[in-house]
């Protein structure tokens, strides 16, 4: 049971849901899978007066468009994503990133859009306020950040934990956002503000409608790794997503996108490290250097009890391995052809 009273409406279309959200001016929240929203409401971090349920809206099946890009409905369940033959064939990195989210039951309930719109996390924030015996923190509208008391005013150092967002950013994906005035399309990267108090660049009455992933060119290869303690049912220490474009020789990198997730208020792209790979032959030394550079610039927030030092080492080691695996994947594909 949730300890406060709220009302519930079921929307038949996404447009109807947006109209309801707009009418309630921030007092309403959209409910998709509920695996993030409902625990948050149980802890009373989020106290909406109305839930607009999207469960009556059937998601469209993933489809490949004429230009080769793939369009995936934001209401697609994560279990559908990881098991979809089409998604596994066309965008294996997305299927892999959906496969490592939470546990099986979470993937059966959670949706793609919900995963992207999840709330940032912090061990202090994610408990019932009644047990805290201190004034509320910034995120709850208070005047202090308890885990980081020397933070600048109104700065919330909580961490955005999505496993799928890094993969989508590496794939250069876009999201289609439905608002009151119509649909707009932005890069997934632009969805994140980097501000823990308002991590998403969405207004109260906007909903994700679909994710669009461009077609992969020949020579594309990828690596994805979620670094965890147990290997299941947990948030990542760091989530590494790498997309490389290789020249015909299979060793020279013509484009690189590296994304590190679960370490800051949004996924981070180490642009300098990406540039250091472009136009170069990928060997162990260069990949190790890029991983070390990334680990230095990402500046991870200590989260879930891991120290900054530990997280930096974690990023360095796992990014090096992820890059190596991406290169190995390209070689295996070449050999298998």
């Amino acid at each position: 049971m949730i300890l406060f009273d709220f009302d519930y409406e079921r929307a038949d279309t996404l447009e109807q849901a947006v109209a309801l959200l707009a009418r309630l001016q921030g007092d309403a929240r959209a409910l998709a899978g509920g695996t993030d929203l409902l625990p948050g409401m149980r802890m009373e971090n989020i106290r909406p007066g109305l839930l607009v349920s999207l469960s009556g809206i059937e998601p469209e099946a993933p489809q490949v468009l004429a230009d080769g890009s793939i369009r995936i409905d934001a209401l697609t369940r994560l279990a559908t994503l990881e098991n979809s033959e089409l998604v596994r064939r066309v965008v294996p990195m997305l299927a892999q990133s959906a496969h490592v989210v939470g546990g099986n039951q979470i993937r059966q309930m959670g949706t793609l859009g919900g995963n992207l719109c999840q709330e940032v996390r912090c061990l202090h924030l994610d408990q019932k306020h009644d047990y805290q015996f201190v004034a509320p923190c910034y995120k709850r509208g208070g005047t202090c950040c308890y885990p980081f008391p020397r933070n600048a005013p109104e700065v919330c150092w909580s961490v955005y934990m999505s496993d799928i967002a890094p993969a989508l950013i590496a794939l250069n994906a876009q999201v289609e956002i439905l608002g009151e005035t119509g649909t707009r399309r932005i890069d997934v990267e632009a969805l994140f503000t980097g501000n823990g108090l308002k991590p998403l660049a969405l207004s109260q009455a906007e909903l994700l409608r679909a994710v669009l992933i461009p077609a992969a060119a020949p020579g594309f290869t990828w690596g994805f790794h979620k670094s965890t303690v147990r290997g299941g049912l947990e948030f990542g220490m760091a989530v590494l997503a790498v997309a490389l474009q290789l020249a015909e020789d299979g060793r020279t990198c013509t484009d690189a996108r590296i994304v590190v997730g679960a370490v800051r208020e949004g996924p981070v792209r180490p642009v300098a490290a990406e540039r250091s790979l472009i136009g170069k032959t990928l060997d162990e030394e260069r990949m190790e250097q890029a991983a070390a550079d990334t680990s230095r610039v990402v500046n991870p927030l200590p989260h879930h009890g891991f120290s900054k030092r530990h997280l930096m080492d974690n990023i360095r080691v796992h990014l090096r391995r992820t890059l190596a695996r991406a290169l190995q994947r390209a070689r295996d594909q070449e050999a298998g052809r």
Binding site: M1, L3, F4, D5, F6, D7, Y8, D27, R47, P48, G49, L50
Partner: peptide, 19 residues
């Protein structure tokens, strides 16, 4: 009825009762 006749704590909508 979980409130067992006592006052229900009302959420963000002041005075509103959910259906």
């Amino acid at each position: 009825d979980v409130s067992k006749g006592k006052d229900v704590r009302v959420g963000a909508v002041a005075g509103a009762q959910s259906r």
